[in-house]
Design a protein around this nucleic acid. Sequence first.
DNA 1: AGTCTAGTGTTAAATTGTAACAGTTGCAAT
DNA 2: ATTGCAACTGTTACAATTTAACACTAGACT
Lengths: 148, 148
Amino acid sequence: MTKNCNHNLCKSSALLAAEKICEQLGARFTQHRRRVFEIVWQSHKAMSAADIMIEMDNKQPPITYRALDFLKSAGLIHHITSLNAYIGCMHAKNPDHVGQLLICTKCNNVAELEPKEAVKELIEQAKQQGFSTQITHIEMLGTCNECE
Amino acid sequence: MTKNCNHNLCKSSALLAAEKICEQLGARFTQHRRRVFEIVWQSHKAMSAADIMIEMDNKQPPITYRALDFLKSAGLIHHITSLNAYIGCMHAKNPDHVGQLLICTKCNNVAELEPKEAVKELIEQAKQQGFSTQITHIEMLGTCNECE
DNA sequence: AGTCTAGTGTTAAATTGTAACAGTTGCAAT
DNA sequence: ATTGCAACTGTTACAATTTAACACTAGACT
Ligand SMILES: [Zn+2]
Ligand SMILES: [Zn+2]
Ligand SMILES: [Zn+2]
Ligand SMILES: [Zn+2]
Protein backbone atom coordinates (compact mmCIF):
# COMPACT_ATOMS: atom_id res chain seq x y z
CA MET A 1 0.00 0.00 0.00
CA THR A 2 2.73 2.45 0.86
CA LYS A 3 4.84 2.47 -2.23
CA ASN A 4 3.23 0.09 -4.60
CA CYS A 5 0.01 1.98 -4.65
CA ASN A 6 -1.57 3.51 -7.68
CA HIS A 7 -1.15 6.77 -5.96
CA ASN A 8 -3.52 8.86 -7.99
CA LEU A 9 -6.23 6.45 -7.02
CA CYS A 10 -4.96 6.25 -3.46
CA LYS A 11 -5.00 10.01 -3.11
CA SER A 12 -8.36 10.60 -4.70
CA SER A 13 -10.04 8.00 -2.57
CA ALA A 14 -8.57 9.69 0.49
CA LEU A 15 -9.97 12.97 -0.77
CA LEU A 16 -13.42 11.51 -1.19
CA ALA A 17 -13.30 10.05 2.30
CA ALA A 18 -12.19 13.38 3.68
CA GLU A 19 -15.05 15.22 2.05
CA LYS A 20 -17.48 12.74 3.48
CA ILE A 21 -16.04 12.94 6.97
CA CYS A 22 -16.13 16.70 6.96
CA GLU A 23 -19.73 16.60 5.92
CA GLN A 24 -20.55 14.19 8.72
CA LEU A 25 -18.83 16.51 11.17
CA GLY A 26 -20.73 19.48 9.84
CA ALA A 27 -17.37 21.12 9.11
CA ARG A 28 -16.33 22.74 5.87
CA PHE A 29 -13.57 21.31 3.73
CA THR A 30 -12.35 24.73 2.76
CA GLN A 31 -9.70 25.66 0.20
CA HIS A 32 -6.85 25.84 2.68
CA ARG A 33 -7.84 22.60 4.35
CA ARG A 34 -8.13 20.86 1.02
CA ARG A 35 -4.84 22.29 -0.17
CA VAL A 36 -2.97 21.16 2.94
CA PHE A 37 -4.63 17.77 2.76
CA GLU A 38 -3.53 17.38 -0.86
CA ILE A 39 0.01 18.38 -0.05
CA VAL A 40 0.21 15.88 2.78
CA TRP A 41 -1.20 13.24 0.46
CA GLN A 42 1.15 14.06 -2.41
CA SER A 43 3.15 11.05 -1.30
CA HIS A 44 3.49 8.67 1.59
CA LYS A 45 6.37 10.67 2.98
CA ALA A 46 6.17 12.59 6.23
CA MET A 47 5.82 16.33 5.68
CA SER A 48 6.80 18.96 8.22
CA ALA A 49 4.80 22.16 8.59
CA ALA A 50 7.68 23.92 6.87
CA ASP A 51 7.65 21.46 3.97
CA ILE A 52 3.95 22.11 3.58
CA MET A 53 4.30 25.86 3.71
CA ILE A 54 6.79 25.73 0.87
CA GLU A 55 4.05 24.33 -1.34
CA MET A 56 1.28 26.56 -0.06
CA ASP A 57 0.15 29.48 -2.11
CA ASN A 58 -0.43 31.54 0.97
CA LYS A 59 2.69 31.08 3.04
CA GLN A 60 1.46 32.61 6.28
CA PRO A 61 2.06 30.16 9.11
CA PRO A 62 -1.30 30.51 10.87
CA ILE A 63 -3.12 29.38 7.75
CA THR A 64 -1.15 26.17 7.59
CA TYR A 65 -1.18 25.44 11.29
CA ARG A 66 -4.90 25.99 11.50
CA ALA A 67 -5.53 23.61 8.64
CA LEU A 68 -3.24 21.01 10.17
CA ASP A 69 -4.97 21.28 13.53
CA PHE A 70 -8.32 20.84 11.88
CA LEU A 71 -7.27 17.84 9.81
CA LYS A 72 -5.70 16.23 12.83
CA SER A 73 -8.71 16.71 15.06
CA ALA A 74 -10.91 15.34 12.30
CA GLY A 75 -8.74 12.23 12.22
CA LEU A 76 -7.68 12.80 8.61
CA ILE A 77 -3.97 13.05 9.24
CA HIS A 78 -1.55 11.89 11.92
CA HIS A 79 1.02 14.02 13.64
CA ILE A 80 4.24 12.04 13.79
CA THR A 81 5.57 13.33 17.06
CA SER A 82 9.03 11.85 16.78
CA LEU A 83 9.66 13.77 13.54
CA ASN A 84 7.36 16.69 14.16
CA ALA A 85 5.76 16.02 10.81
CA TYR A 86 2.48 14.90 9.32
CA ILE A 87 1.15 12.02 7.27
CA GLY A 88 -2.22 11.21 5.80
CA CYS A 89 -4.17 8.65 7.78
CA MET A 90 -4.87 5.39 5.98
CA HIS A 91 -7.83 4.53 8.20
CA ALA A 92 -9.69 7.77 8.48
CA LYS A 93 -13.06 6.12 8.31
CA ASN A 94 -12.33 4.47 11.59
CA PRO A 95 -12.58 7.50 13.82
CA ASP A 96 -10.68 6.59 16.99
CA HIS A 97 -8.28 4.04 15.69
CA VAL A 98 -4.70 3.74 16.93
CA GLY A 99 -2.18 3.76 14.11
CA GLN A 100 1.15 1.98 14.31
CA LEU A 101 3.34 4.24 12.22
CA LEU A 102 6.34 2.70 10.49
CA ILE A 103 8.70 5.47 9.56
CA CYS A 104 11.62 4.79 7.26
CA THR A 105 14.57 6.91 8.30
CA LYS A 106 16.15 6.55 4.88
CA CYS A 107 13.37 7.47 2.47
CA ASN A 108 11.01 9.13 4.93
CA ASN A 109 8.07 7.01 3.78
CA VAL A 110 5.51 6.14 6.41
CA ALA A 111 3.30 3.06 6.49
CA GLU A 112 0.50 2.50 8.94
CA LEU A 113 -0.87 -0.60 10.59
CA GLU A 114 -3.73 -1.15 12.99
CA PRO A 115 -2.25 -3.22 15.82
CA LYS A 116 -5.46 -4.16 17.59
CA GLU A 117 -4.17 -6.99 19.75
CA ALA A 118 -1.00 -5.27 20.87
CA VAL A 119 -2.92 -2.13 21.75
CA LYS A 120 -5.34 -4.13 23.83
CA GLU A 121 -2.41 -5.52 25.78
CA LEU A 122 -0.83 -2.12 26.27
CA ILE A 123 -4.05 -0.64 27.53
CA GLU A 124 -4.63 -3.59 29.81
CA GLN A 125 -1.14 -3.35 31.30
CA ALA A 126 -1.63 0.34 31.89
CA LYS A 127 -4.96 -0.32 33.54
CA GLN A 128 -3.33 -2.69 35.97
CA GLN A 129 -1.26 0.28 37.15
CA GLY A 130 -4.47 2.23 37.65
CA PHE A 131 -3.85 4.23 34.49
CA SER A 132 -6.78 4.99 32.27
CA THR A 133 -5.68 5.51 28.67
CA GLN A 134 -7.20 8.09 26.37
CA ILE A 135 -4.69 8.43 23.54
CA THR A 136 -2.07 5.97 22.33
CA HIS A 137 0.88 6.82 20.09
CA ILE A 138 2.96 4.10 18.52
CA GLU A 139 5.80 5.13 16.25
CA MET A 140 8.57 2.94 14.96
CA LEU A 141 11.69 4.16 13.22
CA GLY A 142 13.66 1.86 10.98
CA THR A 143 14.11 0.96 7.36
CA CYS A 144 11.48 -0.09 4.91
CA ASN A 145 11.40 -2.83 2.38
CA GLU A 146 13.02 -0.93 -0.42
CA CYS A 147 15.72 0.82 1.56
CA GLU A 148 17.25 -2.29 3.10
CA MET B 1 6.92 3.27 41.96
CA THR B 2 5.84 6.52 40.40
CA LYS B 3 4.33 8.35 43.29
CA ASN B 4 4.64 6.07 46.24
CA CYS B 5 8.37 5.94 45.99
CA ASN B 6 10.79 7.03 48.63
CA HIS B 7 12.00 9.52 46.16
CA ASN B 8 15.28 10.44 47.75
CA LEU B 9 16.23 6.82 47.51
CA CYS B 10 14.75 6.52 44.05
CA LYS B 11 16.73 9.49 42.80
CA SER B 12 20.02 8.57 44.38
CA SER B 13 19.92 5.07 43.01
CA ALA B 14 19.27 6.53 39.57
CA LEU B 15 22.31 8.75 40.08
CA LEU B 16 24.50 5.84 41.00
CA ALA B 17 23.32 3.90 37.97
CA ALA B 18 24.02 6.91 35.76
CA GLU B 19 27.54 7.26 37.04
CA LYS B 20 28.17 3.62 36.36
CA ILE B 21 26.74 3.75 32.87
CA CYS B 22 28.81 6.77 31.96
CA GLU B 23 31.90 5.02 33.17
CA GLN B 24 31.06 1.96 31.07
CA LEU B 25 30.61 4.22 28.06
CA GLY B 26 33.90 5.95 28.69
CA ALA B 27 31.99 9.24 28.86
CA ARG B 28 32.25 11.86 31.55
CA PHE B 29 29.35 12.61 33.85
CA THR B 30 30.20 16.28 33.91
CA GLN B 31 28.67 19.00 36.06
CA HIS B 32 26.14 20.11 33.48
CA ARG B 33 25.12 16.58 32.68
CA ARG B 34 24.75 15.75 36.35
CA ARG B 35 22.81 18.92 37.02
CA VAL B 36 20.35 18.29 34.18
CA PHE B 37 19.99 14.69 35.25
CA GLU B 38 19.18 15.78 38.80
CA ILE B 39 16.63 18.29 37.60
CA VAL B 40 14.89 15.70 35.44
CA TRP B 41 14.89 13.33 38.40
CA GLN B 42 13.56 15.89 40.88
CA SER B 43 10.20 14.25 40.41
CA HIS B 44 8.40 11.83 38.16
CA LYS B 45 6.89 14.67 36.19
CA ALA B 46 7.81 15.40 32.60
CA MET B 47 10.12 18.40 32.27
CA SER B 48 10.46 20.48 29.13
CA ALA B 49 13.79 21.95 28.10
CA ALA B 50 12.45 25.31 29.22
CA ASP B 51 11.44 23.93 32.62
CA ILE B 52 14.93 22.60 33.02
CA MET B 53 16.60 25.81 31.97
CA ILE B 54 14.70 27.69 34.65
CA GLU B 55 16.47 25.57 37.25
CA MET B 56 19.87 25.63 35.62
CA ASP B 57 22.56 27.88 36.97
CA ASN B 58 23.86 28.57 33.51
CA LYS B 59 20.80 29.39 31.45
CA GLN B 60 22.36 29.23 28.00
CA PRO B 61 20.30 26.91 25.85
CA PRO B 62 23.16 25.00 24.21
CA ILE B 63 24.38 23.82 27.60
CA THR B 64 21.04 22.28 28.41
CA TYR B 65 20.35 20.84 24.99
CA ARG B 66 23.76 19.26 24.81
CA ALA B 67 23.31 17.63 28.17
CA LEU B 68 19.85 16.38 27.22
CA ASP B 69 21.17 14.93 23.97
CA PHE B 70 23.91 13.17 25.82
CA LEU B 71 21.64 11.74 28.51
CA LYS B 72 19.19 10.57 25.91
CA SER B 73 21.77 8.87 23.76
CA ALA B 74 23.18 7.21 26.88
CA GLY B 75 19.71 5.84 27.60
CA LEU B 76 19.43 7.69 30.91
CA ILE B 77 16.37 9.72 30.06
CA HIS B 78 13.47 9.45 27.63
CA HIS B 79 12.26 12.16 25.33
CA ILE B 80 8.49 12.21 25.50
CA THR B 81 7.76 13.26 21.96
CA SER B 82 4.09 13.93 22.40
CA LEU B 83 4.84 16.55 25.07
CA ASN B 84 8.26 17.59 23.91
CA ALA B 85 9.54 16.94 27.39
CA TYR B 86 11.88 14.63 29.24
CA ILE B 87 11.66 12.04 31.98
CA GLY B 88 14.23 9.93 33.76
CA CYS B 89 14.37 6.36 32.53
CA MET B 90 13.38 3.73 35.10
CA HIS B 91 15.25 0.96 33.30
CA ALA B 92 18.51 2.55 32.35
CA LYS B 93 20.52 -0.55 33.13
CA ASN B 94 18.74 -2.27 30.32
CA PRO B 95 20.38 -0.46 27.44
CA ASP B 96 18.03 -0.93 24.50
CA HIS B 97 14.75 -1.40 26.24
CA VAL B 98 11.50 0.00 24.91
CA GLY B 99 9.59 1.99 27.48
CA GLN B 100 5.81 2.25 27.49
CA LEU B 101 5.30 5.73 28.88
CA LEU B 102 2.08 6.44 30.75
CA ILE B 103 1.62 10.17 30.88
CA CYS B 104 -1.02 11.67 33.11
CA THR B 105 -2.48 14.72 31.45
CA LYS B 106 -3.74 16.04 34.78
CA CYS B 107 -0.71 15.84 37.06
CA ASN B 108 1.98 15.41 34.41
CA ASN B 109 3.44 12.39 36.16
CA VAL B 110 4.93 9.73 33.95
CA ALA B 111 5.17 6.03 34.70
CA GLU B 112 7.06 3.54 32.62
CA LEU B 113 6.44 -0.10 31.82
CA GLU B 114 8.40 -2.59 29.78
CA PRO B 115 5.84 -4.16 27.45
CA LYS B 116 7.91 -7.01 26.16
CA GLU B 117 5.17 -9.11 24.60
CA ALA B 118 3.33 -6.29 22.91
CA VAL B 119 6.57 -4.93 21.50
CA LYS B 120 7.42 -8.31 20.07
CA GLU B 121 4.08 -8.33 18.29
CA LEU B 122 4.53 -4.83 16.96
CA ILE B 123 7.97 -5.60 15.63
CA GLU B 124 6.74 -8.83 14.11
CA GLN B 125 3.83 -7.13 12.36
CA ALA B 126 6.19 -4.51 11.00
CA LYS B 127 8.56 -7.19 9.79
CA GLN B 128 5.77 -8.81 7.84
CA GLN B 129 5.55 -5.57 5.89
CA GLY B 130 9.26 -5.77 5.20
CA PHE B 131 9.98 -3.09 7.78
CA SER B 132 13.00 -3.51 9.99
CA THR B 133 12.53 -1.68 13.29
CA GLN B 134 15.32 0.15 15.04
CA ILE B 135 13.54 2.41 17.53
CA THR B 136 10.09 2.05 19.05
CA HIS B 137 8.19 4.79 20.82
CA ILE B 138 5.07 4.00 22.81
CA GLU B 139 3.38 6.86 24.61
CA MET B 140 -0.02 6.81 26.21
CA LEU B 141 -1.89 9.85 27.44
CA GLY B 142 -4.59 9.51 30.04
CA THR B 143 -5.15 9.83 33.75
CA CYS B 144 -3.29 8.11 36.52
CA ASN B 145 -4.48 6.39 39.61
CA GLU B 146 -4.63 9.43 41.82
CA CYS B 147 -6.14 11.85 39.35
CA GLU B 148 -9.20 9.77 38.51
C1' DA C 1 55.96 18.30 26.64
C1' DG C 2 52.94 17.28 22.63
C1' DT C 3 48.77 16.09 20.61
C1' DC C 4 44.17 14.37 20.30
C1' DT C 5 39.40 14.14 21.73
C1' DA C 6 35.59 15.37 24.36
C1' DG C 7 33.52 18.93 26.40
C1' DT C 8 32.70 24.17 27.24
C1' DG C 9 31.36 29.13 26.66
C1' DT C 10 29.31 32.45 23.93
C1' DT C 11 27.06 34.89 20.32
C1' DA C 12 23.80 34.95 17.29
C1' DA C 13 20.49 33.11 14.37
C1' DA C 14 17.22 29.83 12.23
C1' DT C 15 13.21 27.43 12.88
C1' DT C 16 8.83 26.53 14.64
C1' DG C 17 4.56 27.87 16.58
C1' DT C 18 0.91 31.47 18.64
C1' DA C 19 -1.76 35.56 20.19
C1' DA C 20 -4.67 38.81 18.87
C1' DC C 21 -8.01 41.08 16.33
C1' DA C 22 -10.42 43.02 12.55
C1' DG C 23 -12.65 41.35 8.42
C1' DT C 24 -15.36 38.06 5.69
C1' DT C 25 -18.26 34.32 4.31
C1' DG C 26 -21.86 30.72 4.50
C1' DC C 27 -25.99 29.57 6.44
C1' DA C 28 -30.19 29.61 9.01
C1' DA C 29 -34.03 32.00 11.32
C1' DT C 30 -37.01 35.57 11.26
C1' DA D 1 -34.35 39.71 1.78
C1' DT D 2 -32.58 41.13 5.87
C1' DT D 3 -30.43 40.12 10.08
C1' DG D 4 -27.55 37.60 13.09
C1' DC D 5 -24.39 34.16 14.31
C1' DA D 6 -20.59 31.00 14.05
C1' DA D 7 -17.04 29.43 11.45
C1' DC D 8 -13.33 30.68 8.86
C1' DT D 9 -9.75 34.05 6.96
C1' DG D 10 -5.95 37.56 6.57
C1' DT D 11 -2.44 39.84 8.70
C1' DT D 12 0.84 41.56 11.95
C1' DA D 13 3.70 40.78 15.13
C1' DC D 14 5.64 38.07 18.48
C1' DA D 15 7.09 34.08 21.54
C1' DA D 16 9.17 29.72 22.12
C1' DT D 17 12.28 26.30 20.78
C1' DT D 18 16.35 24.67 18.75
C1' DT D 19 20.72 24.95 16.27
C1' DA D 20 25.13 26.72 13.87
C1' DA D 21 29.45 28.16 14.42
C1' DC D 22 33.76 28.78 16.37
C1' DA D 23 37.26 29.80 19.50
C1' DC D 24 38.64 27.85 23.80
C1' DT D 25 39.87 24.42 27.69
C1' DA D 26 40.49 20.24 30.38
C1' DG D 27 41.70 15.58 30.58
C1' DA D 28 43.80 11.29 28.61
C1' DC D 29 47.59 9.10 26.29
C1' DT D 30 51.83 8.75 24.30
ZN1 LIG E 1 -0.54 5.92 -2.31
ZN1 LIG F 1 -4.37 6.35 10.98
ZN1 LIG G 1 10.72 8.32 42.78
ZN1 LIG H 1 13.02 3.68 30.03
